[in-house]
């Protein structure tokens, strides 16, 4: 194994982890407000196809990101209307969003399945990208990779260093108390849900416009669900999301690792493809095993419907 090989493994890990970071941070904020939105998979899918379509028609990948974000916001608005305004069960509403989104993306995306998109040049940080081993992974990436790092800091700062973040967490811990001292629980939850949707949309856009870059039905392939699991893995803490995302990113490129290592191992490709899913199950088990950790860290009202007048 040469240096170049390790360097490209690091690079690919960061790329594979990026959509997970963005989507998981959006979901983390949503969950911190006490809302469990299981619709990330559907939102990502619609974000991916919207971004792809716009990037294809305009030739501008940046407009693609905006389209993905807009589509994500619209999708999460559907969830909000169902789970917040109409007070439907959050689990069922999220499932509905995932089923609807995956179907809708397949429907809209059909004409784009045979279309290719030019790959976007990465943003090279002068000099730094030439550092051996880490250079390409850290300093020769797409803009959204840098965005994902900024997002971690921004989300952590917002949640723990601003008043708005404190209020959002209060809504997630005890919506009744937050309501009784005059905070609009439903309004704050809407904002958190829409932020989560925007991030899921951007995560989808990264997949279709920058990562692959193409659109195929089912290309999100469970990343929305893995991002949800990441939030549990991170015990609702932004910085830990990054660690988890790169762990899973590493799992996702396991195939490349095995092929490139030069060692002839006879493992069916499907086993390697199953690794991220198996790892997700394993990680959920390891984290959830300790009931205290989960109870201590998860927002107390997570998943519970808030009735404004009850």
């Amino acid at each position: 194994m040469g240096l170049n090989f390790i360097s490209s493994i690091l690079f690919a890990t960061v790329v594979a982890g990026t959509p997970l970071i963005i989507v998981a941070l959006g979901e983390l904020v949503t969950e911190k407000a006490g809302v469990l939105n299981l619709g990330a998979e559907g939102t990502m899918s619609v974000g991916a196809v919207a971004a792809f379509a716009v990037a294809h028609h305009t030739g501008n990948p940046f407009l693609g990101i905006l389209a993905g974000m807009g589509a994500g916001i619209l999708m999460s608005l559907l969830f909000g209307i169902s789970a917040l305004t109409l007070m439907a069960n959050q689990v069922a509403s999220g499932l509905a969003l995932s089923i609807f989104g995956v179907g809708l993306s397949a429907f809209i995306g059909k004409p784009y399945e045979s279309v290719a998109l030019a790959s976007v040049e990465p943003i090279r940080i002068p000099l730094l990208h030439k550092i051996p081993l880490f250079g390409p992974a850290l300093f020769e990436q797409q803009g959204l990779v840098y965005f994902s790092w900024v997002l971690i800091v921004a989300v952590a700062w917002f949640l723990y260093r601003t008043k708005a973040g404190l209020v959002l967490r209060a809504v997630g811990e005890s919506p009744v108390s937050a309501h009784s001292i005059g905070y609009g629980v439903v309004r704050i939850r809407y904002q958190a849900v829409l932020f989560g949707g925007a991030m899921a949309g951007i995560g989808g856009a990264f997949m279709s416009v920058f990562y692959t870059p193409m659109w195929v039905e089912g290309m999100v392939a469970g990343r929305g669900w893995i991002a949800l699991s990441l939030v549990v893995f991170a015990t609702w803490r932004p910085a830990r999301v990054m660690i988890g995302a790169y762990l899973f990113g590493g799992c996702m490129i396991a195939q490349m690792f095995v092929q490139g290592s030069g060692v002839r191992i006879n493992i069916p490709a499907q086993f390697l493809s199953a690794m991220p899913y198996a790892a997700t199950v394993l990680v959920l088990v390891l984290i959830s095993r300790n009931r205290g950790t989960i109870r201590l860290n998860s927002p107390a009202s997570l998943g519970q419907t808030f009735l404004p007048d009850a």
């Binding site: 169902s82 109409l86 069922a92 989104g101 179907g103």
Partner: peptide, 18 residues
């Protein structure tokens, strides 16, 4: 595209929850 079925399925569940 035949995936229009899934669009209908998703809509149905949303309408039910609503």
């Amino acid at each position: 595209p035949s995936s229009i079925s899934k669009v209908f399925q998703g809509m149905l569940l949303f309408f039910l929850l609503g």
